[in-house]
C-alpha cells in the first residue's frame, strides 16, 4: 500500500507515557449520538417547519379560523340585514382614495360616488360593498366562511371516525369479516359520490345538517381503505404481536399501538378531506341545491355573485378569492404534512 503508507511524523514528540493503557475517563462516550434525538411528532414538526409554504398556509388558516369563529363579533354589520336603499354599493374603505375602494363607480366616463348618490349617511362604509339586497358583503363573507368551515370540519370529523373504525375493524378482524367489509367497500366505491350527495340532499331538508350528512356518507371510504391497509401491515408487527401475547384486549391495542402509529396517515387523510368538503359545499350551493337563503356560505355567495358578475364582478370575486385561499392553504398544508410524515423523504 504505497499510497496509504505513512510514517510517524518525527516532529511530533511522542512521550512514552502516552502508550500507557487509557483509563476509562480518557475514552469518549461512544454511545453518545450527536444528532438530536427526535420523537416522531418532533421530527415531523421539524420537517414541516422547513416547508415555508406549509407554515405560511398554517398561519393563514389560523387567521381564517379565528375570523370565522369570532365572525359574529368582528363582522361590521349584520350579514342578513337588508337595507334596500344601500343595495349594490361598491367597496368603500374610509381614508382610501384608490378607485374601486373609495365608494365610487365608473358610470360612462365619469366616476360617481355611489354612496352619495344612494343617500348613504356620512360615516357608513361597506369595506367590500353590498349585494343586491343591501347586505354587507364583508360580513356575509365572514359568516359564509364560518358556515363553510363548520361543514368541512364536521364532515371531516365524521369521515375520520367512520373511516378509522371501519378500517380498523376490517383490517384487524381479517378473514370473513374483512372479506365481507371489503366487498361492501368495493360496491360503494362504484357509486359516484356526486350522485349520492345529490340524492341525499333531495331526500333530506336542505341545510347545513343535510350537507354534512351527505358529505359524511361518501367521504369515509378512502379513509377506511387506507386505514385497513395500514392495519393489516401493523397487525403483524412484533410489538403488536407482543401486546397480543400479553393478553391485551383488541380495543386497548387499537388505542395504545395502532392509532398512534396510524396518526400520521389519519392526519394527512383528514387534511385532504377538509378542502374536498369545502369544495363540495360550494359546488352544491353553486348549482343551487346547497345552503338555502338567507344563510350565507362561500358557495351561495359565489352563486349570488355569479348572477351579476358582468356588472358587479366584486360580488363574485371576493368570496371566490376567499375559497381559493382556503383551498390552496389546506392543500399546501396537507402536502407539507404528508412530506413531513413520510420518513422516506427524510434528509
Amino acid at each position: 500500500m504505497n499510497n496509504s503508507k505513512q510514517t510517524v511524523d518525527e516532529t511530533i514528540k511522542l512521550s512514552p507515557d502516552m502508550f500507557n493503557p487509557a483509563d476509562s475517563s480518557d475514552k469518549v462516550d461512544n454511545e453518545r449520538i450527536s444528532a438530536p434525538s427526535l420523537s416522531f411528532l418532533e421530527d415531523s414538526w421539524r420537517r414541516l417547519k422547513k416547508n415555508k409554504a406549509a407554515v405560511i398556509s398554517l398561519f393563514i388558516l389560523i387567521i381564517f379560523i379565528m375570523l370565522s369563529v369570532f365572525a359574529p363579533i368582528v363582522s361590521p354589520h349584520d350579514p342578513d340585514f337588508q337595507i334596500v336603499s344601500h343595495a349594490n354599493l361598491p367597496p368603500k374603505i374610509p381614508g382610501l382614495t384608490i378607485n374601486g375602494l373609495n365608494g365610487t363607480q365608473a358610470l360612462g366616463d365619469t366616476r360617481v360616488d355611489k354612496y352619495e348618490q344612494q343617500g348613504v349617511p356620512e360615516g357608513v362604509s361597506y369595506y367590500l360593498g353590498t349585494d343586491g339586497l343591501g347586505r354587507d358583503l364583508l360580513s356575509r363573507i365572514l359568516h359564509g366562511t364560518r358556515v363553510s368551515l363548520l361543514i368541512a370540519f364536521v364532515a371531516a370529523f365524521f369521515d375520520l371516525t367512520i373511516g378509522v373504525i371501519y378500517g380498523l375493524v376490517s383490517g384487524w378482524s381479517g378473514g370473513k369479516v374483512d372479506n365481507g367489509m371489503q366487498r361492501v367497500l368495493e360496491i360503494l366505491s362504484g357509486v359516484p359520490n356526486l350522485v349520492v350527495v345529490i340524492l341525499m340532499l333531495l331526500v333530506l331538508d336542505p341545510g347545513i345538517k343535510s350537507i354534512i350528512i351527505a358529505l359524511a356518507i361518501t367521504g369515509w371510504i378512502s379513509m377506511a381503505r387506507v386505514i385497513r391497509a395500514q392495519t393489516l401491515k401493523l397487525k403483524n408487527q412484533e410489538y403488536v404481536l407482543a401486546a397480543k401475547t400479553l393478553g391485551e384486549s383488541p380495543i386497548k391495542i387499537a388505542f395504545k399501538h395502532l392509532i398512534p402509529n396510524l396518526s400520521g396517515i389519519i392526519i394527512i387523510q383528514t387534511m385532504f378531506s377538509i378542502p374536498a368538503a369545502i369544495f363540495f359545499e360550494a359546488f352544491l350551493s353553486f348549482i343551487g341545491i346547497g345552503i338555502p337563503a338567507p344563510t350565507a356560505s362561500l358557495g351561495t355567495l359565489i352563486n349570488d355573485g355569479y348572477k351579476t358578475f358582468r356588472f358587479l364582478p366584486h360580488l363574485m370575486w371576493y368570496p371566490a378569492a376567499v375559497i381559493c385561499i382556503l383551498m390552496i392553504s389546506f392543500n399546501l398544508l396537507a402536502d407539507g404534512l404528508r412530506d413531513a410524515f413520510d420518513p422516506k423523504m427524510k434528509d
Binding site: 359565489i302 375559497i323 381559493c324
Partner: peptide
C-alpha cells in the same frame, strides 16, 4: 405549486 393551484381553485371559478 401549479398542480396545487389546479386542485385548489374550484372549477366553477376557473370556468367563469
Amino acid at each position: 405549486f401549479t398542480a396545487i393551484l389546479g386542485r385548489s381553485i374550484p372549477n366553477f371559478v376557473i370556468a367563469v
